[in-house]
């Protein structure tokens, strides 16, 4: 195992995050605050409670998930796409590092950033609404696993992308809508039956539901199903990464 290489890549990626610290940390704090003002105050004054939880508090897990998913995907995809774009990937390809080490370090760095952001949003939320975390360990488990899984997805997108449009396509046109429609800001139960059924095809519903359960012990779907969905996500992503490296897809000529 080339520990020095993992450390070097991880450090490099984290310092990239550090350079854009303002943007990385300030922007989620601001946007979270905005969500609370817009959704919490404006809509929250009409929807007092969802499943017995104050509306402002209800949306916290969804808000965190929204950031985790979009940030994990965009960070990890950028992290591997950029060296491809500038050509500096030559160094990575000529170095004595295994594919496993490459994935661990890039995905690890992207996931770390997401976890930090999730924590910041959690703390920011505490200033606006009364928070309660019924199962802190489960909460952490969902937070970490989701960050890694979607960073892995981001890595795949970064490898696949051959232009900046594609890089932005998936986060913007797939992840964000799925998250908004996945019950970030409402309970699936509030929808008409037809749309409830449709929602069940949205994988993000399961993530948000499980995450919210760890806070308030309320869930749209069974906890076991949520866990199974994350496991499937992770499994599929891992399989695709393994395939990419086996074939050199879009990495090596």
């Amino acid at each position: 195992m080339n520990i020095h290489a993992i450390r070097a890549i991880y450090k490099f990626e984290m310092s990239r995050t550090g350079r854009t610290l303002m943007q990385s940390i300030v922007s989620p704090v601001i946007s979270t605050s905005l969500y609370f003002i817009v959704f919490g105050s404006a809509i929250g004054s009409r929807i007092a409670e969802v499943d017995g939880i104050g509306y402002g508090a209800f949306i916290v897990p969804g808000l965190i998930m929204l950031t985790l998913l979009t940030q994990s995907v965009s960070n990890a995809s950028f992290g591997i796409y950029f060296p491809k774009f500038t050509g500096t990937i030559y160094e990575l390809l000529s170095a004595p590092v295994s594919y496993f080490e490459i994935v661990v370090s890039y995905v690890g760095a992207a996931a770390t950033k997401s976890i930090i952001l999730g924590t910041i949003i959690l703390i920011t939320s505490a200033f606006f609404v009364p928070l309660r975390i019924a199962h802190p360990l489960w909460m952490l488990f969902f937070l970490v696993l989701t960050s890694f899984t979607f960073s892995l997805l981001g890595f795949i997108i970064g490898v696949w992308a051959d232009g900046f449009e594609k890089l932005q396509f998936v986060p913007l046109l797939i992840i964000t809508p799925l998250t908004f429609l996945g019950g970030s800001f409402y309970s699936i139960n509030m929808l008409p039956p037809f749309w409830q059924t449709v929602s069940l095809f949205n994988p993000v519903v399961y993530l948000i539901s499980g995450f919210r359960w760890s806070f308030y012990e309320i869930a749209d779907v069974n906890l076991g199903v949520s866990l199974l969905m994350i496991a499937i996500f992770l499994g599929v992503s891992l399989a695709v990464v393994a395939w990419i490296f086996k074939t050199g897809y879009r990495i090596k000529n």
């Binding site: 080339n2 020095h4 290489a5 450390r7 070097a8 890549i9 450090k11 490099f12 160094e91 990575l92 170095a95 004595p96 590092v97």
Partner: peptide
């Protein structure tokens, strides 16, 4: 320094 680490050498 990054390159050195990437090639598996201690700092």
């Amino acid at each position: 320094s990054f390159s050195r680490g990437l090639f598996g050498k201690a700092p």
